[in-house]
């Protein structure tokens, strides 16, 4: 029986540092340029053109006609960035945030324009 070639590798590894990123204790591995993380929405820039609603393959985005804005729930987002590319006024942007785990699928972190906010905006429009 010949000695397996892995023996020397394994023994020399024993004296090397582990090649591990100890995540919760250290920073996570840095995200590269152009990383597609959580979608960020700038309500004030949005002109309500509905292009993002048309192009989204996952049905994340919903148009709210009363205020001519969109609202979305990121629980379904597939991070394709189609909406970002198509938005004419750059109201949408992919951030670098990727630690999105929650206990509740309707977590505030995963939604833009919650119902109260929409109602507030409708009120504000009326009072104008």
């Amino acid at each position: 029986m010949k000695i397996p070639p892995t023996l020397s590798t394994v023994l020399s590894n024993l004296f090397k540092k582990p090649a591990t990123n100890m995540f919760p204790k250290t920073e996570p591995v840095p995200t590269p340029e152009g990383f597609r993380g959580k979608l960020v929405y700038d309500v004030d820039k949005c002109i309500g053109c509905k292009l993002c609603v048309t192009v989204c393959p996952a049905g994340v985005i919903e148009f709210v006609p009363e205020i001519k804005k969109v609202t979305f729930w990121l629980g379904r987002c597939v991070f394709c960035a189609q909406c970002v590319d198509v938005c004419p006024v750059n109201a949408l942007e992919m951030s670098k945030e990727f630690l999105l785990a929650t206990y509740d699928k309707y977590d505030d972190n995963l939604r833009w324009l919650k119902n109260e906010e929409i109602e507030e905006m409708i009120e504000a429009q009326k009072s104008k």
Binding site: L11, N13, L14, K16, K17, P18, A19, T20, M22
Partner: peptide
């Protein structure tokens, strides 16, 4: 722990 270190893990 030792086997982990042999495979460059922390273990």
């Amino acid at each position: 722990k030792l086997v982990a270190r042999m495979q460059r893990r922390v273990g």
